[in-house]
């Protein structure tokens, strides 16, 4: 469960996002909204990447502001357009992430095999296509044992086969490890690919739960 308490994000004087109180229950959650509605900002706030007013609590226990290290152990994040130092290889990045997130290198390697980028495992990411970097970032988001995985537009720049693989990975991790997902996407998932337990809407600088008729 993710709890938001009096969240406010400003850039200069403009309020980008304001959430007084919101609870997101565990499950696979879709966050939708127009461009610039604050979806990525919200994900970055949850991931602890950008400063903001207020607090976020995960698992009823860990506050981002008060128990940051314990909180961050519960949250993984994959960016929309990931950027990694070009001289690092996927192998080095995986070891780097596994070391920080206490994850298994072998499991992440298997993920890369599923996503068909294992051939490039020992090559520097500077020669990867944008789709391959995207797949790598998704694999890195699965490292360790997070309670929540935040995926920002996981389907863009990925091919159809990879979309199916990613959706299966999400369902599998959710079923086996009870890991929850917060996913933003402009693309529509069909029910067979992925079904969501909850849908959120970013609109008017705030986040609300979508009603069934809107969903």
């Amino acid at each position: 469960m993710l709890q938001f308490n009096l969240i406010k994000k400003k850039y200069f004087d403009a309020t980008i996002l304001s959430v007084d109180a919101l609870t997101i229950n565990n499950g696979i959650v879709l966050l939708q909204g127009e461009n610039g509605s604050g979806k990525t900002t919200l994900l970055k706030m949850i991931a602890g990447l950008i400063p903001f007013e207020g607090d976020i609590i995960v698992k009823n226990n860990f506050s981002l502001k008060k128990q940051r290290t314990a909180y961050l152990r519960c949250i993984n994040y994959a960016e929309t357009e990931p950027l990694y130092p070009g001289f690092l290889t996927a192998q080095e990045l995986i070891k780097f992430f596994c070391n920080a997130k206490k994850g298994s290198v072998a499991e992440t390697e298997t993920l890369l095999q599923h996503l068909h980028i294992y051939d490039m495992y020992k090559k520097p990411v500077s020669i990867y296509s944008s789709g391959m970097i995207k797949k790598l970032s998704i694999a890195l988001a699965f490292v360790g044992e997070p309670k929540w995985i935040l995926l920002d537009e996981p389907l863009i720049t990925t091919d159809k086969n990879a979309i199916d693989v990613i959706c299966n990975l999400i369902k599998e991790r959710n079923a086996k490890a009870a890991t929850s997902f917060l996913i933003t996407s402009h693309q529509n998932f069909n029910g067979a690919q992925l079904s969501f337990t909850n849908k959120l809407l970013a609109h008017d600088h705030t986040i609300t739960t979508m009603h069934e008729d809107n969903a």
Partner: peptide, 17 residues
């Protein structure tokens, strides 16, 4: 500058200050 451009994700790592 390099940290700002390429290593933003380390802010998400569970490492104490």
């Amino acid at each position: 500058s390099f940290e700002n451009n390429y290593l933003q994700l380390i802010y998400n790592f569970p490492i104490s200050l």
